[in-house]
Amino acid sequence: HMTFVALYDYVASGETDLSFKKGERLQIVNNTEGDWALAHSLTTGRTGYIPSNYVAPSD
């Protein structure tokens, strides 16, 4: 899985969403939902949907 870094803070709007903080590292599990991606946080160990425009690929 590619690793991504959060560009902004995001507060989950539902139970299936994943909250994260700017700078948090995430792995995209499934990116077939258009503007949303299923992601796993390497920081918190949690998995949920995130807005895909809130993250960018990290080196």
Rank of each mutant, 00 (worst) to 15 (best):
T47A: 06
N31S: 11
I50G: 00
Y49R: 10
L38F: 12
T43H: 08
V5N: 03
L18I: 11
A12H: 04
E33C: 15
L18F: 09
S52Y: 15
E33L: 14
R46G: 06
D59M: 13
T43L: 09
G34F: 06
T43Y: 06
R25L: 15
D9M: 03
L42C: 11
T43C: 13
I28S: 01
A56R: 11
P51V: 01
V29T: 07
T44G: 02
H1I: 13
D17N: 10
G23R: 01
A39M: 05
D35W: 09
K22A: 11
D17I: 09
Y54L: 12
T47N: 06
E33N: 13
V55N: 05
G14F: 09
N31D: 10
R25P: 07
G34I: 05
F20S: 00
T16P: 05
N53D: 09
L42P: 06
A39T: 02
V11Q: 11
N53C: 14
E33P: 10
T32G: 12
S19R: 05
A37Y: 15
G45N: 07
K22E: 05
D9V: 02
L42H: 05
P57K: 10
F4W: 13
T47Q: 07
A12G: 12
A6D: 00
Y8F: 12
L7A: 06
L26E: 00
P51L: 05
D59H: 12
H40I: 15
D17M: 14
V11D: 10
F4Y: 13
S52D: 03
S13K: 13
S13W: 09
D9P: 04
P57N: 09
D17F: 15
P51G: 01
T3A: 07
N53H: 13
E15M: 10
N30D: 13
K21H: 08
D9K: 02
K21F: 09
S52M: 15
L7P: 05
V11A: 08
S13G: 09
N53W: 14
H1C: 15
T3S: 08
V29Y: 12
D59I: 13
M2E: 09
P51R: 05
K22S: 06
G14E: 08
T32V: 14
P51C: 05
L26M: 08
S52V: 15
V55R: 04
M2G: 09
A6W: 01
E33Y: 13
G14R: 15
I28D: 00
S58V: 15
Y8C: 13
F20L: 06
Y49E: 03
S58M: 15
G23I: 01
T16S: 13
K22G: 03
V29G: 05
D9T: 07
S41I: 02
H40T: 15
L26Y: 01
Y54P: 02
V29I: 15
D35Y: 13
P51Y: 03
A6G: 04
L7H: 04
E15C: 12
R46W: 06
H1F: 14
A39C: 03
A37L: 15
L18A: 06
N31H: 13
I50R: 00
H1T: 12
T47L: 07
I50C: 02
E15A: 11
L38N: 02
N30S: 14
R46A: 07
Y8A: 08
I50K: 00
Y10I: 02
T47E: 07
D35F: 13
S52R: 15
V5H: 04
A12Y: 02
A39V: 13
N30T: 14
S58L: 15
S13Y: 10
Y8I: 06
S58H: 12
A6Y: 01
V29F: 13
G48E: 01
T44M: 02
